[in-house]
């Protein structure tokens, strides 16, 4: 449900109607910014923001820190799995003397 795609706000088009231009992989479209502006983040502050776009509305400001943190977790899982795989490969090599590939 609810297709959404990250894009970057590159231009403010209309401060009254709260419209801006968003860029998604080089594709530009006017979007409504009402859901990503507030007292602490005025419409002019939106330029450069990464937002999640759904049906022509910027629905959420993407939290760069959180994105990085999630990727870090994924990397850590990767490292753990790599180490485990290396250990398993080592065990197998000792047992079978190096035949067989990954299963």
């Amino acid at each position: 449900m609810c297709l959404g795609i990250p894009g970057q706000i590159v231009e403010i088009r209309d401060t009254v109607r709260q419209l801006g231009l968003v860029d998604v992989a080089g594709v530009r479209r006017e979007v409504n910014l009402a859901c990503v502006v507030g007292d602490d983040h005025r419409i002019v502050d939106c330029i450069g923001d990464w937002v999640l776009v759904h049906v022509g509305f910027a629905m959420s400001r993407i939290d760069e820190e959180e994105a990085r943190a999630t990727l870090k977790i994924l990397e850590d899982i990767g490292e753990v799995q790599e180490n485990l795989a290396a250990m398993r490969a080592g065990d197998e090599a000792m047992q079978t003397n190096g035949t067989g590939g990954a299963s």
Binding site: G4, V36, G38, L52, M59, S60, I62, E66, T70
Partner: peptide, 11 residues
């Protein structure tokens, strides 16, 4: 969490 704030979107 990069998209979903704990309390959602107030606006």
């Amino acid at each position: 969490s990069r998209i979903v704030p704990k309390n959602g979107n107030e606006q």
